[in-house]
Amino acid sequence: MNHNNQQSSDGRHDDDAALTEFLASLMDYTPTIPDELVEHYLAKSGFHCPDVRLTRLVAVATQKFVAEVASDALQQCKARQSAVVKDKRDKQQKDKRLILTMEDLSKALRESGVNVKHQEYFADSPSTGIDPASREE
């Protein structure tokens, strides 16, 4: 897959070196998503490679994706909370907690091309994340 080795041999060498260095650095880096999990799902999808670095590469890519979605959702959550706090100051204490909700997640995922419909009827109550003692039934 060397498309442009004639055009910029120096640049290519730099990129290759960077890539090999990166892949080598992955040996020391342990992604949050465990290797076993990634290997399991890669094997399920038909991809077969014994190299741990490639597994780690996929793990890192997935971790990056999840982290991006999560941070998007966090921004959504914060924006929503700031809007809510203006309306109801008495509920500030409850709203302080950062909760990953389907509402925020579906908004964040829409940006990355995943269309998630929020299950409005049964999935989760709005009091999620609050201590069971403080929940009013």
Binding site: A70, L74, I99, L100, V116, G129
Partner: peptide
């Protein structure tokens, strides 16, 4: 990962959805 990003708690359904999508991502790659 979510905890690292800054979330304190999560809805079970949201976590399930996100983990499903992560798995799908690996699968797709």
């Amino acid at each position: 990962i979510c905890e690292r990003v800054g979330f304190q708690t999560f809805q079970q359904s949201a976590l399930g959805t996100l983990s499903d999508i992560a798995v799908q991502y690996i699968h797709h790659i």
